[in-house]
Nucleic acid binder design. Structure first.
Lengths: 241, 241
DNA sequence: ACCTGAACACCGTTCAAGT
DNA sequence: ACCTGAACACCGTTCAAGT
């Protein structure tokens, strides 16, 4: 309900008080556009952060944005990069590979969780080729190498863990009540399981998605640990390490 | 390429040859609309399967669809249900819980993989409340119960596995080449890992996403198995089972 | 009940014209 | 180089009018 062009003369006529032509000092920048996009996503959801909405928020015409971003898809990718940049990776230099992966996974998921509407929008993007992500991968891979994982399996492990993280992030975006069976009588076991979890959640103050994330991550890493041990296990001479 | 309005004069003028008013026998149905939607998604991608495109394909005006589906979001949910229906669940009645979960996961992922463009569109949807999905959950939960998982942890385990499946499905939608570091020189370990995997993939005929899915799923289930053993382990009287 | 026809309120994007 | 202004080719959705 924006009160635009109401009565009178141009009362709330926010539109361009600026005249055409190149402004003395440039108004926009790629960074400004991306940050505004992320802010609007947070404030209004993914649908409230299109090219036109961002332009309006910046007091500019939509076409002006195209001087700094190639188009909407590129803008979305840029916003994802903005979020990815905030995922710390220094734990890979100080912790054992499995503990480091666990900490990383928590931060990774939290980075998206901080902007709920972005999850559906951004998790869908191909696990990009942008610079930030690649640098993150570099540290993960280095850690796996030091731990003794064979080099041809590094990406396999990395992507498996990342898949779980993204899936868990999607789950986080879903409403806690989304799986509520209501009063259906044809799924008794599910109903019992749903209620038992609900009671447990009510007791502790945690979200449903947190339980699944913690348990899944713990299991995944435990399984990977076992697999690495088996890879190294047949080693007949432990002193060779 | 549906050959519509074939002979006669108005050759390519497909638009409404039908006059207004209720047709003698109704043309549309919810099922027909959903199946056409899925087909168009397969043929043209998610962007080529909007309300208007479906209407055109069915030789009908867009507004006619609203007699059978509430709107676009409901249509997308319906298409997801169409896909979900094809995921078999009978393995939960015949196999041990962990083997059943493994088979289920393979089918679940394959159901989406059969319609690549849908993955990004559908995986994003909250793990719905629709009837098919809930019935699927019922069988999973029943299996976990028989295996000895405490009832308040059934959904936790189920959702953890499902998160991994959906994350793996997203990975499947990404191009194999998407993680290619190109000729970057600042990520040597990553570059080596990428090339080592590429060589391995070239040898065997598999996709990158398959490796990560198999390894992640195996690890996840192995970890869950260990956790269940620990839960049951302290049992002082094995005969009580 | 179930379709057409016309309209509404949006999109992202392009491009000439201005400075 | 970087903005405005106007236009293009789309969307999903609503609703009166027809049968």
């Amino acid at each position: 309900m924006a009160t635009r062009g109401t009565p009178g003369i141009p009362e709330v006529a926010d539109p361009p008080r600026r005249r055409a032509g190149r402004p003395a000092t440039s108004i926009l920048s790629r960074t400004l556009i991306l940050e505004t996009g992320l802010r609007l996503i947070d404030e209004r959801g993914a649908d409230g952060a299109g090219m036109r909405a961002i332009a309006k928020e910046l007091g500019v015409r939509p076409s002006a944005l195209y001087n700094h971003v190639a188009g909407y898809p590129e803008l979305v990718a840029g916003v994802r990069e903005l979020i990815s940049e905030r995922i710390p990776t220094d734990m890979f230099d100080t912790l054992p590979w499995d503990q480091a992966l666990s900490e990383w996974a928590h931060h990774y998921r939290a980075a998206f969780a901080a902007h709920p509407p972005t999850i559906a929008l951004l998790a869908v993007l191909p696990l990009s080729e942008d610079s930030v992500t690649t640098e993150m991968y570099e540290r993960v891979v280095a850690s796996l190498g030091r731990a003794g994982w064979p080099v041809e399996r590094h990406l396999e492990v990395l992507v498996a863990v990342e898949a779980f993280i993204l899936g868990a992030a999607l789950d986080l975006a879903a409403d806690d009540d989304m799986m509520n069976p209501g009063s259906r009588t044809d799924v008794p076991e599910y109903l019992a399981a749903y209620r038992a979890r609900a009671a447990r959640l009510a007791a502790g103050g945690r979200r449903a998605a947190d339980l699944s994330f913690e348990t899944g991550l713990r299991a995944l890493l435990a399984g990977l640990r076992v697999e690495l041990e088996e890879l190294k296990g047949p080693d007949p001479d432990p002193a060779a390490r």
